[in-house]
Computed example of a mutant assay.
Amino acid sequence: MKRLLTTVCAIFIGLMVFAQSNDPILGKWQNPSGEGRIEIYKKGDKYYGKLYWIKDSSKKDLKNPTESLRSRNIQGLEILTNFTKNGKTYEGGQIYDPKSGKTYSCKMTLKSNDALDIRGYVGVSLLGRTETWKRIK
C-alpha cells in the first residue's frame, strides 16, 4: 500500500511539472529590430512579459504619460500584462510601448515554437499593427 501511494504521488508530481513546462509561450523572445528582449512568464493564471534587456540599458521611460514614472529605466519594465490563454492565442492583455509612452490592447499568437505574433491595437484588432518576435535559445 505504501509503495502504491508513493507511485501515485510520483506520477501526480510528474504530471504537474509536465503541465507547467508544456506552455510554449514561456521564455525569452527578441523583437524584430533586435533592440529589446522580453521574458514571458506566468503569474497565477495570467501571462506577463518583462523587458529584461535593451541595447541602451540607461534609457529612461521619458515618454510615459505619468510624469513621476519618466525617470525609471526602460530595462526591467513589465510591458506585457494580464493575458489569458485561449488555444495558441493569448488575449485580453495590454502592451506598453516605451518609445511612444502608449499602452495598447494586445493579443499574442504562437505561430511556431520559435515565432510569436504580437498584435497591438486600439479598439478592435483590425486597427493595429503586428510584429513577429523570435525565440531566444
Rank of each mutant, 00 (worst) to 15 (best):
M1I: 15
M1H: 14
M1V: 15
R3Y: 13
R3A: 15
L4W: 14
L4I: 15
T6M: 15
T7W: 14
T7G: 11
V8K: 10
V8W: 15
C9L: 14
C9T: 12
I11A: 13
I11M: 12
I13Q: 06
I13N: 06
G14T: 04
G14V: 00
M16D: 07
V17W: 07
V17N: 10
V17Y: 11
A19Y: 15
Q20E: 13
Q20H: 13
S21V: 12
N22S: 15
D23E: 15
I25Y: 11
W29H: 09
W29L: 09
P32Y: 04
P32N: 07
P32M: 04
S33T: 12
S33C: 03
E35K: 12
E39N: 07
I40C: 05
Y41A: 05
K43E: 10
K43I: 03
D45R: 03
D45E: 05
K46C: 02
Y48R: 05
Y48W: 11
Y48F: 15
Y48M: 04
K50V: 01
L51K: 06
I54Y: 11
S58E: 12
D61W: 05
D61I: 02
L62Y: 11
N64F: 02
P65I: 01
L69T: 07
S71D: 08
I74K: 10
G76Y: 10
T81V: 12
T81L: 12
N82C: 07
F83V: 00
N86Q: 15
N86S: 15
G87H: 14
K88I: 02
G92F: 08
G92A: 10
I95P: 04
Y96M: 09
Y96T: 13
P98M: 08
K102Q: 13
Y104N: 07
Y104F: 08
S105M: 10
T109E: 06
L110V: 05
S112H: 02
N113G: 04
A115P: 00
A115N: 02
L116M: 01
D117T: 01
D117G: 01
I118P: 01
V122K: 02
V122D: 00
V122F: 01
G123N: 03
L127M: 09
T130L: 00
T130E: 03
E131K: 09
T132G: 06
T132A: 05
W133H: 06
K134L: 07
K134H: 11
I136V: 13
